[in-house]
């Protein structure tokens, strides 16, 4: 069973279906964020439904681009740099 799921995920033929599954999941998460109670909210943005989705996406993109940019201009060196 487990093996079949893993193979299903790895089969390029299923890419389309997996994409759809991801989008549906994302939609469900955002939708449910509209209906939950927010009595614990401390900051103003915690009260905005869907905030976490926006912030999560921004965080991910920021991390990828900022770290790769600094990495390429400065931090990444050849493997034998210290030898």
């Amino acid at each position: 069973m487990m093996k079949r799921i893993l193979f299903f995920l790895g089969d390029p033929a299923n890419t389309g279906r997996l994409k759809k599954l991801l989008y549906i999941t994302l939609a469900v998460i955002v939708a449910s964020d509209f209906i939950v109670h927010r009595e614990h909210a401390v900051f103003i943005w915690d009260k905005i439904p869907g905030w976490s989705a926006i912030y999560g996406f921004i965080s991910c993109v920021l991390l990828i681009f900022v770290s790769k940019f600094i990495g390429h201009i400065w931090l990444m060196k050849d493997e034998d740099y210290y030898d």
């Binding site: 994409k19 991801l22 999941t25 994302l26 998460i29 955002v30 449910s32 964020d33 939950v36 915690d46 869907g50 905030w51 976490s52 989705a53 926006i54 912030y55 999560g56 996406f57 965080s59 991910c60 993109v61 990828i64 681009f65 790769k68 990495g71 931090l75 990444m76 060196k77 050849d78 493997e79 740099y81």
Partner: peptide, 29 residues
């Protein structure tokens, strides 16, 4: 829902920019 939002939309970012994240055979200082 907040945690799932953060994590799954990170996943979205990952798959959108998959090429950007390709491991490169370098080391970092």
């Amino acid at each position: 829902t907040g945690s799932l939002g953060i994590l799954m939309f990170t996943a979205l970012g990952f798959f959108l920019f998959l090429k950007k994240l390709k491991p490169e055979p370098y080391m970092t200082i």
